[in-house]
């Protein structure tokens, strides 16, 4: 039997929903371990189908969505959820930037599909949409990027939201935190690192383990991709490989930068 709690809760109503992805982002949320029970004391988790049997789909104050729009089903769900929530937060790289699956935008779609299915399942609901981050279809109020997002950051955002404070966007490159940590620059060691172009806030995690930044938190809004490419070419990296690396998590962002670059070039020439 369901026990009814008469006490009216003034806690914020939080939902965690997912569309196509690896479910890693919402796992990151549940992996906050020690903080989890304390956190759940402060919020009302009304929907989290991965770990809850009873889920509500009404009046969310905050809704986290992970995954990218990859099928008709995904799109229908996303559009419905947007109407039910005050604040929509894109959780993770898929929802924020499209992640790996969006690489299909720079590949031959048909060839990619053929490599997996000789004949795609006929159910209409399964019809693939070339994967896009969620802001292509709905308004997104805040982003927590990263693949997966750091659990500290998720807890931080939730804490602020509980207090009714708008969380702040981190907008410095990975290099900023990397140099604060006094890491030996990977680019200087001849390793293809995207740190200068990519949104930080990750405490320069990968470079701190001698692994180059591959861009899971997305490009900075004011990143100069052209000079980034030039820098990498000057270091002797293969131009094709540079593009493959840059499009790994952020294909759509990359394409937007390209068209923006072309436009400003044309305008520049027109004026000259």
């Amino acid at each position: 039997m369901v026990k009814k709690t008469e006490k009216k809760s003034r806690k914020i109503r939080v939902g965690v929903q997912s569309i196509t992805g690896c479910a890693g982002c919402q796992l990151s949320l549940y992996f906050v371990e020690d903080a989890l029970l304390e956190l759940l004391d402060k919020i009302d988790l009304v929907a989290a189908p991965m770990i809850k049997g009873r889920n509500e789909e009404e009046d969310y104050d905050v809704l986290f969505v992970e995954g990218s729009v990859s099928s008709k089903d995904d799109l229908d769900n996303l559009l419905r959820w947007r109407k039910k929530t005050k604040l929509l937060i894109a959780l993770g790289a898929c929802a924020s930037h499209g992640c790996m699956q969006s690489m299909k935008h720079v590949m031959n779609q048909e060839e990619v599909e053929r490599a997996v299915y000789n004949k795609f399942p006929s159910d209409k609901r399964l019809k693939p949409i070339t994967d896009v981050p969620i802001h292509k279809y709905v308004k997104v109020d805040f982003y927590i990027p990263g693949c997966p997002p750091s659990k500290e950051e998720i807890v931080q955002v939730l804490k602020l939201l509980v207090q009714g404070v708008q969380p702040r966007v981190y907008d410095k490159p990975v290099c900023h935190e990397c140099s604060l940590k006094e890491n030996y620059c990977l680019l200087d060691q001849g390793i293809e690192c995207l740190g200068p172009l990519v949104n930080g806030g990750c405490r320069a995690l990968c470079p701190s383990y001698n692994h180059p930044c591959t861009g899971c938190r997305g490009f900075l809004d004011d990143a100069n991709l052209e000079s980034g490419k030039q820098l990498l070419r000057d270091k002797g990296f293969d131009p094709d490989m540079i593009i493959k690396r840059m499009t790994k998590y952020n294909t759509l962002q990359f394409l937007e930068f390209e068209t923006r670059g072309k436009k400003s070039n044309e305008e520049g020439e027109g004026r000259g």
């Binding site: 569309i19 299909k104 990619v112 693939p128």
Partner: peptide, 8 residues
């Protein structure tokens, strides 16, 4: 949704 990893 199909993400086509083997193709990517």
């Amino acid at each position: 949704g199909a993400r086509f990893f083997e193709g990517i």
